[in-house]
Design a binder for these strands. Structure first.
Length: 225
DNA sequence: AGTTGATCATTA
DNA sequence: TAATGATCAACT
């Protein structure tokens, strides 16, 4: 039987475990845990993240909390190309569209999630079968003041639009480093939001995503200082 | 229905 | 070809 990973007791232990994964393939990890690797991610899009959560001992399940609440650390896998550039934007959290009055940046889900992130870059070119994709060197990141300010600005702009009833006018083009995009099982999912005249309307659920240029900067800073 | 894990695939 | 908008699965 495969090992049953326990939650890491410290950030050092978490980092140590993560660093041991560098160079391994997703197939290696899956084999250890006795898990089947999908041939592609057309269906199991979150498979990689869940595999690493299990391997590193993150709390299972999907709650709005950090992956390692005791350590205050969030785990994120990020697909990169051969040059180490992000291939996809990074989902941060769900965007609440009602009851937004009184929420400030410091107490926001975005600020909480991004306070401390363990990034695990993984080869993500679609031509590489999932089982053969290699894990690169993980990095622990805390946003610096510039990054924090950029995130805060975008968050405030987008939250303003939501509170002013402009949800329907938000597109992925808004936001310098962070955008809002649909986040649902399909187009039929609807949730409450405020309309332009202050009335309640139904709209597609949305989520916050980090732009590739932003995550690219994070990876670059970590390995080129 | 909401929120997590994300990547897919059509469009511009 | 890159980015936006859409979608898939598991779990609460």
């Amino acid at each position: 039987m495969p090992d049953k990973p326990t939650p890491p007791e410290s950030i050092e232990q978490l980092l140590s475990r993560a660093n041991e994964l560098a160079g391994l393939t997703l197939g290696d990890i899956a084999k250890e845990l006795d898990i089947q690797v999908p041939k592609n991610f057309k269906r199991e899009k979150g498979w990689t993240g869940q595999l690493l959560e299990l391997k590193l001992g993150a709390k299972a399940g999907s709650t709005p909390q950090q992956d390692f609440p005791d350590l205050g650390v969030e785990l994120k896998t990020i697909p990169i190309d051969i040059n180490g550039m992000p291939l996809e934007t990074t989902y941060v959290c769900y965007a609440h569209l009602t009851d937004v009055a009184g929420i400030n940046w410091q107490d926001s889900n975005v600020r909480n999630k991004l306070n401390c992130v363990l990034w695990i870059p993984i080869e993500g070119d679609r031509q590489i079968p999932p089982a053969q994709r290699r894990i690169a060197t993980p990095l622990l990141w805390r946003p610096n003041h510039l990054q924090l300010n950029a995130l805060k600005q975008d968050w405030e702009e987008l939250m303003d639009m939501i509170s002013l009833g402009d949800v329907e006018n938000i597109t992925a083009r808004h936001g310098e480093v962070m955008q809002i995009r649909p986040k649902a099982a399909d187009g039929s999912a609807l949730t409450d939001a405020f309309g332009a005249d202050g009335s309640k309307i139904k709209t597609r659920p949305r989520g916050f995503y980090l732009r590739k240029s932003f995550t690219q900067q994070i990876l670059h800073d970590a390995f080129n200082d």
